[in-house]
């Protein structure tokens, strides 16, 4: 099914079952946040896990996706699916620009260029009139899906978000397990060798970066509609840091890792919120434990234990 291996198919079915049943047990808005962050992390994982590119500026795509979706829904009165596509398009355009400037540099330099560009986007969002500065864009209407289905109710919104997440997840999975993905993995393993076989590796990295940025924009846009608000938090560099944490914690280079990482981190933010800044301390502690004890992340270690690729 969709080019999944046996173990991945089982994992996928379990994930679908959880997505289908959990809104009857847990608060749907919390779950929607998990799914948006999970899609964001999966998009990020395409780069770090399968191309070996460490982007430290993914908040720019996520946050700008959120702003533009919110703007499109509120000011232009577009339907939710179109608004989210606007968010994805913004991610794509920004991704193209970022990649064009950063892709020729390796390792740390690549990460620093993406960070610098993302900070420029942050200050743009702080100053530009349409983003509402410190206030952000508030009271964004969820609207009617395809102009018909009202998303005002959390359950309708939930199924929409779940649908977007699953489509995004399957798309990323397909990219990873495609002829293109095979070249990406070769670049990750040994870029000079890939060049010596005749691959224009910069082109591959560029395409992967744009795909990742597009899905990050879609994830950010979806989140903006769920909460009816787009703020500076999502373009801040801490969001870029969070997505690194989530991906490492879940297991980089695994298809389910970022989803598990998102669940763990968003749950902590949610259920430990009453302890204030202890959330950050706990996150830090968990991150240290993760790096020391299970470097491949939760899913990476599990896959290693069961000798499966998850």
């Amino acid at each position: 099914m969709f080019g999944f291996s046996r173990s991945q198919s089982i994992g996928f079915v379990i994930m679908l079952a959880l997505i289908a049943t959990s809104p009857f047990v847990l608060y749907p808005v919390f779950l929607m946040k998990v799914l948006c962050v999970a899609l964001f992390a999966c998009a990020f994982n395409l780069l770090i896990g399968y191309v070996g590119l460490m982007s430290f500026g993914h908040a720019a795509f996520y946050g700008m996706g959120g702003y533009l979706t919110a703007h499109a829904a509120k000011e232009w009165g577009l339907t939710p699916e179109l608004s989210i596509l606007v968010g994805g398009a913004v991610g794509a355009v920004l991704g193209l620009l970022f990649a064009w400037l950063a892709i020729r540099r390796q390792g740390l330099y690549f990460a620093m260029i993406t960070l610098a560009l993302a900070q420029m986007v942050y200050f743009f969002c702080l100053e530009a009139p349409f983003t509402g500065g410190e206030n952000g864009i508030q009271q964004v209407p969820r609207g009617n899906l395809f102009g018909i289905i009202p998303l005002g109710s959390d359950m309708n919104m939930y199924w929409t978000v779940a649908g977007i997440f699953i489509i995004g997840f399957l798309l990323l999975h397909r990219v990873v397990y495609s002829p293109f993905g095979q070249v990406l993995k070769a670049i990750r393993e040994n870029e000079p060798r890939a060049i010596s076989l005749g691959y224009r590796t910069d082109d591959y990295k560029q395409i992967a970066f744009v795909l990742s940025a597009t899905l990050a924009g879609i994830a950010g846009g979806t989140k903006a509609l769920v909460f009816g608000i787009a703020t500076l938090t999502d373009v801040n560099f801490t969001t870029s840091g969070d997505v690194v944490l989530i991906t490492l914690l879940g297991g980089l280079g695994t298809i389910f890792g970022p989803v598990v990482g998102a669940l763990v981190v968003v749950s902590m933010e949610n259920y430990l919120a009453q302890f204030g800044s202890w959330v950050t301390v706990t996150q830090g502690a968990i991150f240290v434990v993760c790096v020391l004890l299970f470097r491949r992340g939760v899913i990476g270690e599990l896959g290693g234990l069961l000798k499966l690729s998850l």
């Binding site: 397990y177 495609s178 002829p179 293109f180 095979q182 070249v183 890939a194 076989l197």
Partner: peptide, 24 residues
């Protein structure tokens, strides 16, 4: 897979991110 990476380059279509790797 190492050898296939070289073989697939000559066939072309290595940018096809929407295709299953089963074509390989």
């Amino acid at each position: 897979e190492n050898v296939r990476v070289a073989l697939q380059r000559q066939r072309g279509g290595s940018y096809d991110f929407w295709r299953s790797e089963r074509v390989l």
